[in-house]
Amino acid sequence: MKTILTIQSHVAFGHVGNRAAVFPLERLGCEAIAVNTVQFSNHTGYGQWTGTVFTPDHVAEVLRGVEGRGAFSHCDAVLTGYMGDPGLGDVVLSTVSKVRQARHGALYACDPVMGDVGRGFFVRPGIPDFFRDRAVPAADIITPNQFELEYLTGRPIADLATALEAAAAARALGPKVVLVTSLVRDDAPSGVIEMLLDTAEGSWVVATPRLPLEPPPNGAGDCVSALFLAKLLETGDAAAALGHTASAIYAVFDATRAAGVRELQLIAAQDELVAPKRRFTPAKVR
């Protein structure tokens, strides 16, 4: 059984941040140690919410307690996502360093949550710089969306060639694995949404049908990062992890569409997190 320390946001209602990551991790057989960076009533996409952004000192105190239980020596990976406070960056990177010292081979998977196409940046000033300059170079795996990849590399993406160039540029910053969680390109087949995986061993694209979800549900990137990390730790095969991740998140989207609601239907689709009924196979493109 793999153990993952996940440092992300928390909402009482809905599924984003740790609420979108912990359940998939556990359904895939991982032990999840969840440390929350915020506690909100709901995700901010609604425009109204209540709650608190936890201070870096608060998060560091919780992590000290976790470390005191000897948990760092059992962690196979650290997963991080949305950060409400740029000062949290030092706490996160210090924790990654401690986990790596306590557990040889532990991975750092960084979801550089900053913004999205059409919305632009939605995080506090300083956080994008932290991701680009410090977190991404320290990470083994990054899972940006297309907007975030363009920011990290300064490379606009229009087609598969430019997407591959941007992914390679991101790997040159330090990570060994780059998973682009949502890719829209001019030369893609119509009616699909894609994910792109880039590693030193090769690159793969997987396409799934674009479902009519309006507004698009929040938290999908958080769920994708958790699914991919869990399957990568289980199999050691990045392409296989990509195929499973795309198939599982499609099942979640399909259940969400069928329910006619805005929040990801993780509970309704829980069996397909483990064994998706409809499988999508990645195609090697490099």
Results as ranks from 00 to 15, higher is better:
213 L>E: 02
236 G>A: 00
178 V>M: 11
95 T>H: 08
175 P>N: 07
142 I>Y: 13
183 L>F: 04
82 Y>R: 14
161 A>H: 10
60 A>L: 05
205 V>R: 14
166 A>H: 01
251 A>S: 14
47 G>H: 03
239 A>C: 12
189 P>K: 14
210 R>T: 08
101 Q>F: 00
8 Q>E: 05
147 F>K: 09
77 A>D: 04
27 R>S: 10
111 D>K: 03
56 P>N: 02
272 E>V: 12
31 E>I: 15
23 F>G: 02
61 E>Q: 11
48 Q>F: 10
281 T>D: 11
136 V>W: 03
96 V>F: 05
146 Q>D: 07
128 P>K: 09
83 M>R: 04
213 L>G: 00
271 D>M: 08
132 R>Q: 15
20 A>L: 04
120 G>C: 10
261 V>G: 07
279 R>G: 05
150 E>P: 07
46 Y>K: 00
236 G>K: 07
154 G>Y: 09
282 P>H: 07
60 A>M: 13
129 D>C: 00
94 S>G: 14
102 A>F: 05
39 Q>F: 10
215 P>Y: 00
256 T>P: 01
246 A>G: 05
36 N>L: 14
242 L>R: 10
191 G>Q: 11
232 L>C: 02
90 D>N: 14
43 H>R: 07
71 A>N: 00
13 F>Q: 12
215 P>F: 01
181 T>A: 12
157 I>F: 01
17 G>K: 04
87 G>H: 11
18 N>V: 11
265 Q>N: 08
149 L>H: 09
146 Q>N: 08
153 T>M: 08
138 A>G: 05
30 C>N: 02
36 N>K: 13
196 L>D: 09
195 M>N: 02
209 P>D: 13
98 K>F: 03
44 T>N: 01
113 V>Q: 00
76 D>F: 02
256 T>D: 03
152 L>C: 13
55 T>F: 04
183 L>C: 08
137 P>H: 01
83 M>G: 03
148 E>L: 06
78 V>Y: 11
165 E>Q: 14
153 T>C: 09
283 A>K: 12
52 T>Q: 14
4 I>D: 07
161 A>F: 07
144 P>K: 08
27 R>G: 03
247 S>M: 09
9 S>Y: 06
87 G>F: 05
112 P>E: 01
52 T>I: 12
28 L>N: 09
5 L>M: 12
81 G>S: 15
48 Q>G: 08
178 V>N: 12
275 A>G: 06
185 R>K: 14
117 V>G: 02
270 Q>P: 06
75 C>K: 00
198 D>M: 07
33 I>P: 11
258 A>F: 01
137 P>C: 00
231 K>H: 14
19 R>T: 00
251 A>H: 06
245 T>W: 06
5 L>F: 08
23 F>S: 03
